[in-house]
Design a binder for these strands. Structure first.
Lengths: 186, 186, 186, 186
DNA sequence: AATGAATGAGCCTTCATTCAT
DNA sequence: AATGAATGAAGGCTCATTCAT
């Protein structure tokens, strides 16, 4: 059966929890106690558990929005007539999204996406990204010895690096992304 | 006064604890409970606390050897007559060491090195690395908009990235390092 | 808002913990581990912490009942038409209550009452007691060089003294209280 | 055999430990870790244990000097031709000594004096004090319903009371002692 | 469905005490 | 005799998770 449409109040609660978790994750505190997330969301712990049976499930849900965003970008990249431009666009978008969503990398590269929906999105993401890379490679604008998985990991790495310094990581992330793109050329 | 030579048995215990911690860190489990480290080392918890009053102190001790190693490399890099070659050597060495010592990055980029010795080594490391970069920049073989801090962070990021995939990260790390070096050229 | 009426079962647990703590305190073991109090109360440690975030909070709660009792007495004393009689009544009541509630003195004379309610009661207690003493002094039935604080401390001291011997401290406390009253006369 | 005369250095160590413990006790920190006492004394923990097998033994040793002092006073009191004056002198001395030696009361009224020497002194102290009280009672200058034990306890209580307030307890102790003496009159 | 009280395992840390050096 | 390293029991506290209301 399709996942029963949530009652209005249930949906609102779910959203609140999600918002609290998102805020925590963005603030870099991805290990915030569930008790505390519940408190900030203004709901009981039980409610958190009802909507998200495991912490992993919650993190995935948090990552769901950026994942959709990235999916859109990768599709747009695949549709770009310029293979090199499309690839660059993809990498830049991934970098931007990664830097704004701390847990993102873990879910994307982690092993067990509990939720089927996430798994599906992830699979598509990877498949399309692979095509984008393939095309760029064929056009001779990207090194041949680099896989889609490498690119994905490198984007994560760059996000990690950008976050290591103090203050605003965005500027750093931008620079690092350009470095990465330069390094990826043949 | 010099830090009083340890008694033979004390030194052995210290080494055991260190070995257990090192193993844990290499295995990627840098947050292993001190209890557990003590158990694996075959000593009481108290002994761990005696030798390393804080977890940070223990991590620093674990990182001490690779830090010394890297320090030697950076000195050698500074002595290399070829600025570009010296710089590349430094980055490659840093990459290799980082990949073999998970906690390394954190201690290197973290804020408060409890132990004075670590602080000193770290300071020298950074100073010399800065000179190496400066020289490479002056020789026109490295982009001008990249600081020593950036390089340090990027090496960490690359280590992180290499570790994200399954199995042997070494090969990946090597590739990523070359990408980084390529990206750093003007 | 009023402190939300506790759920029936929560209230029962709170009471059990309180009872266990009270028993321990009366038995003179005011430093009983919270672990042990939890065990005796038949609840988990967490429950103790939920109801009383700190040991101090628990002690204050334990002392709350006798504090209320004493407050009633001191008010009655203030209302007594006979200044000397009122004062004596106050001292005797304080002695009796002190002897039955070991931690009482510490909370009363200690510095930081965590709970606002305790602080308020304490303040009123002291204020009214001061008036009782004042009146007695004015009537010439109490030495002029003794402050309310002194009386408070002396009552604690007498409780302490009464508890030092073996067996039943009550009888001793009574005698010591009379000695104190005699000594306080001009 | 008589307790083998200590070697000079052993005696010095013993004295150092004693001094450290005394200082801690006077500072009101009678529960200072033995490790810490050893450190302050500049000796190893083992040395503390050698000289004082139990914490109780150490406390008794700390109390030994004031005990001797009090013993002298009580003898002097017994020798005083004036029964009332002798008694008052005894109480005042006890008060003064008690206020300067926090652990004193506990050792004096506690149950198990591990050291035989302490036990002996204590016994004599009590015996002589009893005679002083007896004489005062016979002279009609002290209430008849008060035992030597009571007086001892009351002095402890007064010390306790004096220490409850902030800052300098000496002044308070003096006042409280006079109150006690007044209260003890028939 | 929601709540939040209760639970208890588990980690952290301290310190009395022992014992090899 | 002295030392201080080692030990481990004990207590403090947190937090994921369950479940009665």
């Amino acid at each position: 059966m399709p996942p029963a449409p949530l009652r209005a109040d249930a949906a609102r609660n779910r959203e609140r929890v999600l918002a609290a978790a998102r805020a925590a994750v963005i603030a870099g505190d991805a290990s915030l106690p569930l008790n505390e997330i519940a408190r900030r969301a203004g709901v009981g712990v039980g409610t958190v558990y009802r909507h998200f049976p495991t912490r992993q499930a919650l993190l995935e849900a948090v990552t769901d929005e950026p994942l959709a965003l990235l999916l859109a970008e990768v599709r747009a990249a695949a549709a770009d007539p310029d293979p090199g431009g499309g690839f660059a666009r993809l990498v830049r978008a991934a970098g931007r999204i990664e830097i704004d969503n701390v847990g993102f990398a873990e879910v994307l590269t982690g092993d067990d996406p509990a939720a089927a929906a996430t798994a599906a999105k992830r699979a598509e993401l990877i498949a399309v990204a692979e095509r984008v890379l393939e095309r760029a490679r064929a056009a001779g604008v990207v090194r041949a010895d680099v896989t889609a998985g490498d690119v994905q990991r490198l984007v994560c790495g760059i996000g990690h690096a950008a976050r290591l310094g103090g203050a605003d990581p965005h500027e750093r992330a931008e620079l690092y992304t350009e470095l990465l793109l330069a390094g990826l050329r043949p």
